[in-house]
Design a protein around this nucleic acid. Structure first.
Lengths: 366, 366
DNA sequence: CTGTTAGCGCATTCAG
DNA sequence: CTGAATGCGCTAACAG
């Protein structure tokens, strides 16, 4: 029964010091039940004389409520998830909840482990940005519900699973961005960060399938891009879609390769920050000027984008809002208790297209 | 005794189902003590038939160990703290610890509250980047130690307090950066993000004092800048130091103001990302080219800096390493228990000066 | 090796 | 209103 720490005073000790019964001390310290003013004062005095602090763990095992929520994301150092985490903790802490945040590095095993840990630590709810793409690798998402712990998905839906979720409208965002590029006169538009498929893809159908087997948000962005092309009756060129592993280096290579094509893209749509920086590197090394020779629009606005030369046109995601709404939804579920009244709901937030100066008419020749 | 959740199976239930005593079930499920193979199997079978999961909270109140550490930072959405948090959780989770992370928005009251919450939730240790600058506003930093909870300071020392800490060598970093600028021929170097003082400052001594009353890291960076000036026998020009509130907007205004000076800076050293973006905005609006007309070096390298036009010279902080080492130090303290053997130690990590293309010889005239 | 018994710190029921 | 007694789920001595 190791209690290695220097004796934190307990309720019993306070009660003794105040010369009252345990329960009375417990009531005043716990802020429930009836207790006379004099008693209360005695207890309070004794309490802070001893430096008493409630042991929330003990309280939690007794009440079954921990006032802690779990947050599992791919990488907390990613500014996107950082923003989301801030949004979550803003609303959570306003309601007296704290967040246990775990990073999974996009590994499903770590995600599974994270969920288990959170369940075992008896969090009151979980907000999770899952790396799972298909409904068959989602057994771990059932566990919380079985244990009566609300779960809300964040930023990524899982097709086939009807769970609470707060995401952004990736498809509309990508469609909008691509459409702007098309409106500027581009028809050869590089798409940086398609689904990471190992083998070469020959047909559009294969592409769509591959997208479906990967992260929902990525798939949606690709679909939005395809939508825009279809809208304008522009034929899809598979060589204009990066399909490799998602790293800045691979993006660099993909762009460099596309630039060497006969039908090289005159514009690029980058669906994430690393894709964008990789692309910018490639354009620089190729000696191409933005936007006179090639246009570009990125995803995930950051303060940097506005101070680039030229300032970059971006689609901004409401990261904080995403976190806030996820937390609000979760807290609502927690409040309503096991009464599974409401059916799961998915909320889709709008993005904002920020026009700056990295998009210009397509050059007539190169 | 509210237990709103759908009955998570307990050890007793498992024991009953397996037809063994509580303790036997507890031993096999808890992985301690002796238990025969057959018994173990029976218990394990019953356990996962019922979907048993250890209630870590209950275990924690019993053992006095929560396997949770607290992390309190100013803003988890800041990539710097995000990186730090990732470093922390890497080493923590490898050792079976999870992190409760709280953001304080740089407000002392929230920081105090955060520490209280963490103590009450009985975390095994705390890593904290304090907004407290002077030793007189640090009563809350005593609490954990009184309760036997190790605390390690992160990124910011508190002069006068001898606590465990892991920081970077801000002074050396700033000195180095400034020296490079001087070596390039600059003698009028704007320093963006000095201490936020309300009233105008007339003398160097006042400046140093003001710095001492503010965030340790900021003070150190300013001191390093001063060091470099002294090294080169360059007189300090107080008009070249931004003293206002630390926002991108104020940085923009400060730079704009400096640019209008007779003795306008020919180079800028920006001590944080927002300071840098504000400065870049101002330079652009002033129509000044980098580095031919003005040189610049920033703090906090990000992937963006390398793709700017021109690529920016930066001093990079080892964020992950900072987090990792803080976590390692903390875990060591946790391991060694209340045995306060070792005295507090401060570890100072080196930064890296990344030379790119935003520094050039000072223009001979403007 | 196993089961019984007693805590951990707090919440809560129930007589007084 | 108060306090004694019991329970939460788990750990941990201690006999058998």
């Amino acid at each position: 029964m190791g209690k290695p720490r220097p004796s934190a005073p307990t309720i019993s000790e306070v009660a003794a010091a105040a010369g009252v019964g345990r329960a009375t001390a417990a009531r005043t310290l716990g802020g429930y039940g009836y207790v006379s003013a004099e008693m209360r004062d005695r207890v309070l005095a004794a309490a802070d004389a001893l430096g008493y602090r409630t042991n929330q763990l003990a309280r939690s095992v007794s009440t079954g409520v921990s006032h802690t929520i779990g947050v599992v994301v791919a990488d907390i150092s990613n500014p996107f998830f950082g923003g989301v985490a801030l949004g979550i903790s803003e609303v959570a802490s306003a309601r007296g909840f704290d967040a246990l945040v775990l990073s999974t590095a996009e590994h499903l095993e770590e995600e599974i482990n994270a969920v288990n840990v959170l369940v075992d630590k008896r969090v009151d709810g979980i907000i999770l940005s899952s790396a799972a793409c298909a409904a068959d690798s989602t057994a771990h998402l059932q566990l919380p519900n079985e244990q009566g712990i609300p779960l809300v998905l964040l930023d990524r839906l899982i097709p086939g699973l009807d769970l609470d979720a707060v995401v952004i409208d990736n498809r509309a965002a990508a469609r909008h961005a691509t459409t702007e590029l098309i409106a500027a006169g581009h028809s050869r538009i590089g798409f940086i960060w398609g689904p990471p498929v190992p083998d070469r893809i020959e047909y559009r159908r294969e592409l769509v399938e591959a997208a479906g087997r990967n992260l929902w948000s990525d798939g949606e962005r690709l679909t939005g891009y395809l939508d825009a092309l279809d809208d304008a009756a522009i034929p899809l060129d598979l060589d204009h879609i990066m399909l490799g592993e998602k790293t800045e280096m691979r993006a660099y290579e993909a762009v460099t390769r596309m630039l060497a094509l006969d039908a090289a893209p005159t514009a690029f749509f980058c669906t994430e920050t690393d894709a964008l920086t990789g692309t910018l590197h490639a354009l620089r090394d190729a000696g191409l000027a933005i936007p006179s020779q090639v246009s570009i629009v990125g995803f995930d606005d950051s303060s940097w984008a506005a101070v680039m030369n030229p300032p970059l046109t971006m689609v901004r995601q409401p990261m904080l809002e995403l976190g806030r709404q996820a937390a609000e939804l979760l807290l609502r579920r927690i409040d309503s208790g096991a009464g599974d009244a409401e059916p799961p709901m998915q909320r889709e937030l709008e993005t904002e297209f920020i026009e700056r100066e990295s998009v210009a008419p397509a050059p007539t020749h190169r």
